[in-house]
């Protein structure tokens, strides 16, 4: 819940910066961190079981959304692309890195993590047996 609220406030800050006409690079930075935090916050809420986050999926949330946030911020800090610069997979290097970290990584990691944790952490817990 904290990640969700902090993320939303980050987005509000980013939008306020644009509306006020501020050209600070902090606005996209706040937008990147805010968006990732909101997604991580919602994902975290959904893996709470009887008041506690399920361990494997919680790790997935931390790693995948952490990497996405770092990917966005890292590419924001990279210099603007120029013609004739190095290519990676046929695209400008910064573009390829961004697509790999914020597109391909969650695309591959999240469905696999979900399937692997499904039986233990997603399926409802069995009814407690009353042997008395």
């Amino acid at each position: 819940m904290i990640a969700l609220v902090v993320g939303l406030l980050g987005i509000v800050g980013a939008y306020a910066g644009v509306l006020l006409g501020l050209t600070s690079p902090l606005a996209p930075m706040a937008m990147a961190i805010g968006s990732t935090a909101v997604l991580a916050g919602i994902a975290q809420l959904a893996i709470v079981r009887r008041g506690r986050a399920t361990p494997r999926l919680a790790r997935t949330v931390r790693w995948v959304f952490g990497a996405m946030g770092c990917g966005f911020v890292g590419v924001l800090l990279m210099p603007a692309p120029v013609a004739g610069g190095p290519l990676l997979f046929g695209l400008p290097r910064a573009t390829a890195i961004l697509l790999l970290v914020t597109g391909a990584l969650p695309l591959l990691a999240l469905p696999v993590a979900y399937a692997r944790a499904f039986d233990d952490e997603v399926m409802p817990a069995p009814e407690p047996r009353d042997d008395a």
Partner: peptide, 22 residues
């Protein structure tokens, strides 16, 4: 394709495209 486009407008295939990061 990338070389042709970036010669005309490097931002288009840059990480955020023509409309920028925000």
């Amino acid at each position: 394709i990338t070389r042709t486009i970036e010669a005309a407008d490097p931002a288009l295939l840059g990480p955020w495209g023509a409309r920028g990061a925000m």
